[in-house]
Structures are given as structure tokens and as C-alpha cells.
Write a protein that binds this DNA or RNA. Structure first.
Lengths: 356, 356
DNA sequence: GCATCCACTGTAAACGTTTACAGCACTCGA
DNA sequence: TCGAGTGCTGTAAACGTTTACAGTGGATGC
């Protein structure tokens, strides 16, 4: 399978490479030339080399979505939304993970070398080093997640503070008075904001007790372990606020292990409103941070920036909304699995309650 | 942020581009030259352009993992395994999804244009057209999933037939006698093999009743809908065999809706042994098809082929193993969420039973 | 019949690298 | 003193494309 070049196609068609190129790209060329060239290309199995084309054209038609934690379904959801938008604009989306294997800085630096025409980043931690690299990267970047201070970087963020207020207010309204927060690592961006959001939210309710613990990471297993710790304390909380759905599901399992009924003995809430929240029993009350909408917004921001690199940086914040399920509300029957998130959020059957 | 080229670096360092290139790539060059060039590169913020480098070197150092259904956690698991292997060999892994937006044929054709040095494919459907494209693509390919006939394509496959036998034998051993199979679309590769596997497995037990139904796709929601159909029939089965974990989870929810106790009234099993199987209650008995191992094997196969393109094609089949949980076995306490799959499969606490 | 335009074509120069090749200066052994 | 070797350097050609430019021939306008 040796590579066949446009030179061979041109020779086979009896025209110059320039004519061949023009014919193949639908530029000005006579019908006979087009026919000859297309026939030759077909026969030889010619496909234009992407690297050569990219080098000459100065763009790759590829965009990247770089994500820290692909194990979390919420990122898959965002990616799907991103892909829908960018593929409609003729770009191919590639996903690169920046996990334990490669630091986010390395990934950005690498992607900046010309592999892609733009990138969307969902980093778990925003370090000064990362900001420095982002500031000087020549390729358009959108950060999907909170950025500190005033950066001139396009940015789409969830509103974790409001999210925490929504759950805490909800729990208080449900009569809970001793709330434990199971955070993910607080040195991550979501961890930090949810920590602060929780603090602010409980401060508004001086009548309730509040405590916090930190899970190793944002996974079910870590949430399970951290929740066990909380539940082992002598005075048990009557509500667990988890920093995301995975931790929340771990907490449900831990409570179950302790023989506690949910929501009778203890309420549990999550964040992200992933499909999983509707699938576990009891259904996990969660705050929808608009993953789909954030993904879409980020993609659109990126496309606009590619169109107009001089454009001032925008920051878009998506409003969260509370989705109440059985894990926090006794009289809430848990609904059936629905084919799409849209239906879950606005179900005709009114099996879920939305607030916020 | 205009692109800075090696020519500028060379000029700034007062050497030729050749020397600059050699210095930057650690080839033979005097210490003074290296110092000057590195200093200049640093100062100007030079990063080598990836497309130019790829064009000249004839490789991109990128590999692709193309997957049909990124919403299914089992593919995420395989991807993680793939990434571990390829990144250890200095390659960057990009994921491209071939879903509803772009056909697998298009994705392969596109990737064949030189974007990547090799690819691993997990197609849901293997059409003749896809096989034709694969046969003539110039870039190394490994297919992760069953291939028909004798293709000269590196191939890693699960053993769906044995998997189905494992679950059916298990259910029969547990005393079930009326088993309903909820398949995914049977025009997909996994769907077809699981259909056939189920047929063969029940044929070995002439004493039991068997029936089948097909879900729209391999998702929770589709599994839920299909299971409802099965459960609505006048004579209800006492076991549901789902074609994968997501469908199985949907089936658990459906059974719950019908007020059935699991496994008392009805047993449910899945396939893939994803993390979710251990998280839902009751725990979902599932067959582990060795996703992690398959991913690793596929990656290694790909690396070997890149090393030696003339190498004969290999086919690797991974043996499945049954993981029994509460959904099919009354006396089975469901274990705690574990931090890793490895632990889940070989737990010291013996909370799960492995067979097969 | 001449100039003008038009549709099309080929030549050649790019894009930013890497690298084969030749050349240079110097050292070393004979 | 010479030849060969060594260590480094610059020139220039490639990689496979696209595209600016300068034609070409023929049709068309007057």
C-alpha cells in the first residue's frame, strides 16, 4: 500500500500537478481535465495526504477536546455536545485525555504544535503554569471550567456556588439540619468552588450543623470510602451533599451498608445530573449544571474565535437547576429511565421536580 | 502570536537552519551551537510545527482509537487500557467517535489520510464496505471486535458465545427455567454473536423455555423499554439475560416497576462487567469480557504491526469469566464499590464469586 | 482584423521541517 | 609533510500539497 501522490495522478491523467490539484478541489478546470483527473485518482486510489495539505493550507480541520477525567460521564456528555456543533461546521473532533499519564500543560503544549486548529479544555486543576501556556499558545482555546481572575481566554463555566445553594436550601426545606459535605479534592477547580459554595450556602442557615470531608477523587469508590468515614462519626448527619453524582452514588452505597434508609434516615444529593442519577435507587437528587449546554456554548465560542481571532474573550456562565429525586424527598417516586436527558429534565409525567 | 519558525531561530542564533534543526533534535552539533540555538528557541518561544515535521518524517506519532458508542463505559475502559500502552511507547492517543454523525467508513477513510500512524477500531457494524476500506488503507489497523471470515487484519475479540453459555448455564444451575434474552440490535456485531450464543446455550438445555426480544440499542433506556415488553407477556420469564450491562440495568428498573423482586421473582444478568454492574442494587451478575485486557492486546498488536508491517495478521480472543452478584443469586451479598476493576474481580473479601 | 477578454493550463515557488552531501578546519599517525 | 580521519557546518533538496503568476488559444467585440 504505497502512498500515491498527486504527482502520480497528474502523470496518469496527462496533466500538470497544478491542474490535478485544481480539478480535485473543484477549482477552475475544464470538464475534460476534471474527468481525466478524477478517473486517474479513482483508479490509483489517491487520497490527499493530510499532513501536506495541513502544512500548505495552514490548518488541519481538527479540533481537540482535552479532558482530565474521561471516566466521569458528565465529560462524555459535554463532548457529545461539542462534537455535534463542530462536526456540523466541518471539523473533526479528537479527544485527548490529560490524566495521570500526561499533564495538562504537556497536552496543551503538544496540541499547540499544529495538530489542531483549536481546542476546548476541561482541566481539573488550573495552575499558573497552565495559564501561562494558555496565554501564549498560538491556537484558539476555550476553557470549559472556571478560570481565576480576569483572563483573556474564552471561558464557559458552571455555577457551582448557586448549585450548592440549591441543594442546601432544598435539604433545609426538607427539614434536614445536620448536613455533611463530601467534596472531591479541594485543590481542583470544581472542588474549590463547591467547597466555597457549600460554606456560603450553610452560612445562610445558621440553624443547621455542617461538616465536610474530602474524597480522594471524584469517583464512586472514593465517594464510598469518604462517606463511610462521615457515617462512622458518633453523631450522624441526616444529609450528605456530594460534590458530584459519582461521589453521591458511593455515598448511597455507604449509607446502605450502614443499614440506613434513604431518604428516611439520611438524604443524599449529587451534582451534574448524569444519567446515573436517574438510574440508581433511590434516584439521586442532583443539580443539573447544564453539561450539554456548556459543551455547546464552548464549541460555539471556539468556532467564533477561529473565525475572528481578534474578538474579545467571552465568559459564559450556565445557570444550574435542581432535579429532585427520591434520595432527598420522601414523596418522590423515582421515574423510569428516559431515552434522553432532555426528557429527563422536562418530563411530561412530572415525575421529577425541577427548581432553581 | 505569530508562528515562529526554525528559520527565525537559526537567524537569531546565527547559524544555519540545518544546524538549528540538529541542535534541537539532539543530533551532532557543537556545544556552543546547541547553547545558542536553545537560547534563541527559548527566547522566541519556538515550537516545531507538527504538520511540517510529520510531512518530512512521514509519521505523526499519533494513534487513533475510533469507537462507535462512547456512551458505553466499556469502551471508555478499553480506551484507558489502550492509552496506557500507547503513551508508554511515546504515542499520543486521540479518540474519534464514529457514531450517528459520521459513518465508520468515513472515519477510517479520513484517518487514513495521514493524520495518524495507526488506528484501533471498535465498530458496531462491520459492513463489506468497511472491510474493503480497511483492506486497502495504508495505515496499520487493529479491529477490536469480531471480524467475519478470514481477514488479514489484526483482530482482538471477546468470546460472546462462551459468555452467553456462562450466563445461561449459571441461570439454569440456579434453577431458572424460563429465560428471556434482551438483545441489542442484532444487526450489530455484538448483537449477532450474542443472539447466536444465546441460541446455542439454550439449545444445550432442552428443558428450559427461552425467548428473545431486541432493544433499540445498547442503552439503559432501550433496555428498560424492551424489558417492559417482555414482562408484559402473560407468562412471565423467571430470568432476563441482557446483551450488556446497560440493557441489564434497564431491565432491573423495569422489573422493579412491575413490582418484581430480584432475584426472588426474576433474575437479571448483564454482560461486560462494567463498574455500573457493581453499583446498582441488586448487583448485576455479569460476564467480564476482559475489556482492559482486550484494550491492552489491541494496542500491543498495533504497535507490533507498526514496527513490522509485513508481519502476518494475528487474532486474539480473550476468555470471558462470569461474575455473580445479587441479581441472579439469592445468597450473594452485594459488595462495596472498589477503587479498581482489578480489585473487583479478585476481591480478597470474596464478596463476589468468579466462575468460567 | 485587431484588441480584449475569457477559460484554462503549466511552471515554479512556497509551507516548515529534516537530512544527504560536500566542505571546512583541525588533529593525528606515519 | 601528507593522508586520513574527526567533528562540525552550510547548501540545497526533499516531503506532498496549494496557488500566484504568466502564459496559451480561442471566442468575442468593435
Amino acid at each position: 500500500m504505497a502512498r500515491v501522490t498527486i504527482t502520480q495522478v497528474a502523470a496518469h491523467a496527462g496533466v500538470s500537478v497544478a491542474s490535478a490539484s485544481r480539478a480535485l478541489n473543484g477549482l477552475i478546470a475544464s470538464p475534460q481535465t476534471v474527468a481525466k483527473v478524477q478517473h486517474a485518482a479513482e483508479k490509483l486510489g489517491y487520497v490527499a495526504d493530510a499532513t501536506a495539505q495541513s502544512l500548505k493550507r495552514g490548518r488541519t480541520n481538527q479540533l481537540a477536546y482535552a479532558v482530565a477525567d474521561i471516566g466521569n460521564p458528565v465529560y462524555v456528555e459535554m463532548m457529545t455536545a461539542v462534537e455535534r456543533v463542530v462536526s456540523a461546521s466541518g471539523y473533526r473532533l479528537v479527544l485527548s485525555s490529560m490524566g495521570t499519564l500526561s499533564s495538562s500543560v504537556d497536552v496543551v503544549r503538544d496540541l499547540s504544535r499544529g495538530y489542531v486548529d483549536g481546542m476546548i479544555l476541561s482541566p481539573l486543576r488550573v495552575t499558573d503554569e497552565l495559564l501561562a501556556v494558555l496565554a501564549k499558545t498560538p491556537v484558539p482555546v476555550v476553557v470549559l471550567g472556571h478560570l481565576p481572575g480576569r483572563q483573556s481566554i474564552d471561558n464557559v463555566r458552571a455555577d457551582s456556588l448557586t448549585a450548592m445553594r440549591l441543594v442546601v436550601d432544598h435539604l433545609v426545606a426538607e427539614g434536614r439540619s445536620d448536613v455533611a459535605f463530601v467534596n472531591g479534592p479541594s485543590d481542583t477547580t470544581p472542588g474549590a468552588f463547591r467547597r466555597d459554595g457549600f460554606a456560603a450556602a450553610v452560612a445562610a442557615h445558621p440553624e443547621i450543623l455542617a461538616r465536610s470531608v474530602e474524597a480522594e477523587d471524584f469517583t464512586i469508590a472514593a465517594g464510598y470510602a469518604a462517606a463511610r468515614l462521615v457515617l462512622s462519626e458518633e453523631s450522624r448527619p441526616d444529609a450528605i451533599v456530594a460534590a458530584n453524582d459519582l461521589i453521591g452514588i458511593g455515598a448511597i452505597r455507604a449509607a446502605e451498608d450502614f443499614g440506613l434508609s434513604i431518604p428516611g434516615d439520611i438524604a443524599v444529593t449529587g451534582i451534574d445530573n448524569t444519567e446515573l442519577a436517574g438510574v440508581v435507587r433511590p434516584g439521586l437528587t442532583s443539580v443539573d449544571l447544564g453539561a450539554e449546554e456548556r459543551g455547546r456554548a464552548a464549541a460555539e465560542l471556539l468556532l467564533k474565535r477561529i473565525m475572528d481571532p481578534e474578538r474579545p474573550a467571552h465568559t459564559i456562565a450556565i445557570a444550574p437547576s435542581l432535579v429532585v429525586r427520591g434520595s432527598s424527598h420522601a414523596r418522590m417516586p423515582d421515574p423510569a429511565p428516559s431515552p434522553t436527558r432532555e426528557h429527563t429534565e422536562h418530563t411530561d409525567l412530572n415525575e421529577e421536580r425541577e427548581a432553581g
